[in-house]
Design a protein around this nucleic acid. Structure first.
Lengths: 241, 241
DNA sequence: TTCTATAAAATTGTCAACAAAATGTTCTGA
DNA sequence: TCAGAACATTTTGTTGACAATTTTATAGAA
């Protein structure tokens, strides 16, 4: 039988359950509610999400493929603790990929997509003047993902989502958390350069922005522990994230 | 207990078995020995690789995350048949990422790494004058992966390996297989631009190169069937691939 | 107390049996 | 001959039990 393109494959309910776990952990990492090194027990997760162990297993396997979770044979799954090498690689990849993205956005005509970025910056400003630091942190990361979304390319969006989330882990482990992650108006400048249609400038500003984040990192990993139990970390109001 | 960085986690034997399957399928796709749409039965693969079904399952799951295999609920696993959208996204991602790579290679000093590219080009020339088409196809794709390797970034290498392999699927499905995939000396030109330290030129040449491949694609998918059985496709002499 | 050895408990890894779904075949009737 | 229903076979999905390993708890000796 040849497959018709229009044929519909329903996604089994199991896949949705897996995605729920994956998303919850992604969000918790992304918003720094969970520390690198946190043990993710299979039975524990199974109870929290009311799913079978096998399902948890697949979710953890997927997360390990994305570099969010480390799997250690016979020991279990842990929120990834990025090494120095990981940090270097993630930032270099971001430099290369995001530079390419802003260049293309600046070179070609994506005006319609840029409006979303404009309104996003307004939100960032609001959070800044409200001194809502967690929100600002979240929005700051999101800016980069929205940049990718402007290319209308789900592959790039997913790649950047992974990179930004891994950056969150790196900052949690190696960042001072003060200088880092608090751009004044650098996003604004980058977007302006794109709107002006100046790829070189946009790239330059973006690279400086990333370098600034990178400079805020130290070489000695912080040790930190979660302040909440897994249950509270993973299941929570997601209405604004 | 806190984890010492030097601590060694042995990889369970199972992971190696999984990787064997993943690599075999990657190679088969990459070298176009297997057609898009080919059914990958769990029991069949289990018998070929002498592993349990569970393990086959995980390997297929991993491949589906990488876009090489499509998983259809209750139907099974099939070599991915990239859609028009997939094709667009893969090529756009390659443009963005590879442009970033060659720019960085041209801008910074990676001379030591470039020697490998030089010797790779010699191999390509050899294959070209020998009219060894399968080998030339393989080497042509590899050139792009070696470009990524020159950045010394395993993340980028893996990303590019996925993109190049997916390109192989796209060409298998939409390509004319004649003009496509047969660069004369475009790789040579790109490398020269890098060696000259000219990022703009390197990027321009690379983009033209990718566009040329893209132009060789038609809109109507070819239907093709494998000429060999799965066993022969997957298990074979890998001494020169 | 502190360290080590031993036993108990808990957690992860694996497998086989079973259930559910899809595929293939046979049979019937027009 | 063809269509379609009924049945049988194959393949995928899921669960639960068990084995292997690690972690925790316990006890004893220096």
């Amino acid at each position: 039988m040849t497959l018709k393109k229009t044929e519909i494959y329903r996604t089994s309910a199991g896949v949705d359950q897996e995605n729920e776990i994956v998303e919850a952990i992604f969000n918790a990492v992304y918003n720094q509610r969970i520390s690198p090194g946190t043990k993710l027990g299979e039975t524990a997760l199974g109870e929290i999400f009311k799913v079978s162990r096998e399902r948890v297993r697949r979710a953890l396997f997927l997360l390990s493929n994305k570099g969010i979770v480390d799997l250690h044979s016979n020991k279990g799954a842990f929120i990834s603790s990025p090494s120095e090498k990981d940090s270097r690689e993630v930032f270099q990849a971001r430099e290369i990929i995001e530079a390419g993205i802003v260049r293309q956005l600046a070179a070609k005509n994506f005006e319609s997509k840029l409006e979303i970025l404009r309104s996003h910056l307004k939100e960032e400003d609001q959070a800044r003047s409200d001194w809502d630091r967690p929100k600002l942190v979240r929005l700051s990361g999101e800016f980069h993902i929205i940049l990718a979304e402007a290319t209308n390319n789900s592959l790039l969006v997913e790649t950047l989502r992974e990179l930004v989330t891994r950056t969150s882990l790196i900052v949690a482990l190696l960042g001072d958390n003060i200088s880092t992650w608090c751009p004044d108006h650098e996003h604004e400048l980058i977007l302006s350069a794109i709107e002006k249609g100046d790829p070189d400038l946009a790239e330059k500003l973006l690279l400086e922005h990333l370098k600034k984040i990178r400079r805020g990192l130290s070489l000695t990993p912080k040790v930190s522990r979660n302040s909440l139990a897994l249950q509270e970390i993973l299941i929570q109001d997601t209405s604004n994230e």
